[in-house]
Design a protein around this nucleic acid. Structure first.
Lengths: 227, 227
DNA sequence: GTGCGCAAAATTGTATACAATCATGAACAC
DNA sequence: GTGTTCATGATTGTATACAATTTTGCGCAC
């Protein structure tokens, strides 16, 4: 099948599309990503699809099982804890740095970001709201001018989205929390210490809102349970 | 060209070989990694080579320039600072956790690691010594039982090796420092606070031993300077 | 001799063909 | 009816062929 739309659709682009779909919970953990299927859907060859899947695998969003195929990752309870451990080490201090460097224009950007998040939530688009809420954290790293840390946080945020999909217990409540608003306030005041503390607590809140009791994670398809 | 040796040499294996070569400074920053060249050397098709190069690119050890080829990365001064910023956030706290959990057997492992490093240094194999010294840091994350953080530190260590290749100022001195010995002592005592502090200082020492003054990084080949 | 332009060579990007492995299911023994 | 075996089909792994782009270098004008 040849590509129909105007853009040639490179591997990076396909990567972004799939990453977004996973982040917005349009692709559930455990979903099989067949190479031919994706190639047909997006009108590219398997070469491109494989490159994109390899990238997703590197970001831990997809698990590549040799001779079996690619599946949307299903983070274990252990992995979920580790991801939030890592975030706890990186994000509070990064928020501190961001608060010291942030410009009024960037404060406005963050605020616009939150507004969009609330709007999506109001429109019932929970996936979109979750994605935007993640972008908020990534923006903070960008404002702190730490590209390396930003790349790490980006990965951790995406993985958190999978974790949320698997272990969230009270879905409705989450996005209503005004932790992000409080953070913006600290940023506007250039109050690094407060931003750091708020971020730390925000991450703890997120973690405790998960149900990480050690029931071996329920596989979505019965088939996988036996394999 | 067909593969001569016994093992089929998969993409992951080639990735490891190249990563090690970069880490041990056998491949200098800026070196071009031609696909056909690598394919010939290792007796595999370009398909495998490209997969390995893509992985290396994801680890930021190789820079992929579209239609130009793959080159061993040359981290900028800014990137060098960012890498050590990230390490400063991750490693001290991870050392703390490791100190609390470490077993006597693991202490012995670390000690053996250091002995091997000293031996390599004595044998004049600086590249090997540098590699082993990096593994020490990765082992700490492993002992802390933090796979996610370990993966991040692994990447940061490899990138640090490139940074050292570019910005180190007093080569001989480095590995003689006994920072690792002091860390082991703290680990043996399960003294988390001391381990954390030692690691923090160790990373600061490393950073200050670099020459990160903002001269636009000297390109190894004149050709790249103009491109 | 210097600089421009174009053609040839080399290198990377993508698609496709073939090989290897795994999944499915029918046939058969018990 | 249950379980095993083997053949068939589907899916992934690898190599190769072709297209697109870049680099190289020759030839020519000035």
């Amino acid at each position: 099948m040849t590509n129909v739309s105007g853009t040639p659709l490179t591997a990076d682009l396909l990567f972004q599309k799939l990453e977004l779909a996973i982040h917005e919970h349009r692709l559930a953990p455990g979903t099989k990503l067949g190479e031919d299927d994706l190639a047909d859907v997006y009108g590219v060859s398997r070469t491109i699809v494989r490159a994109a899947l390899q990238s997703l695998s590197h970001e831990r969003l997809v698990e590549l099982k040799r001779n079996k195929g690619a599946f949307v990752a299903q983070p274990s309870v252990q992995e979920a804890r580790e991801v939030f451990e890592a975030r706890a080490l990186l994000e509070p201090r990064t928020a501190y740095s961001a608060a010291e460097r942030i410009t009024p224009a960037q404060v406005a950007q963050l605020q616009a970001h939150i507004d969009a998040e609330h709007k999506a939530l109001h429109a019932g688009d929970h996936g979109r709201a979750l994605y935007l809420s993640g972008q908020f954290h990534i923006d903070i790293a960008r404002i702190a001018d730490q590209n390396t840390i930003q790349a790490m946080i980006t990965q951790l945020i995406s993985r958190s989205s999978l974790i949320i999909a698997l272990y969230w217990q009270r879905r409705a409540a989450m996005c209503e929390s005004h932790a992000h608003d409080a953070l913006i306030s600290a940023f506007a005041d250039h109050d690094g210490a407060r931003a750091e503390e708020l971020m730390k607590n925000h991450l703890l809140d997120l973690l405790t809102s998960l149900d990480l009791r050690n029931k071996t994670s329920v596989p979505l398809s019965l088939k996988d349970a036996l394999a």
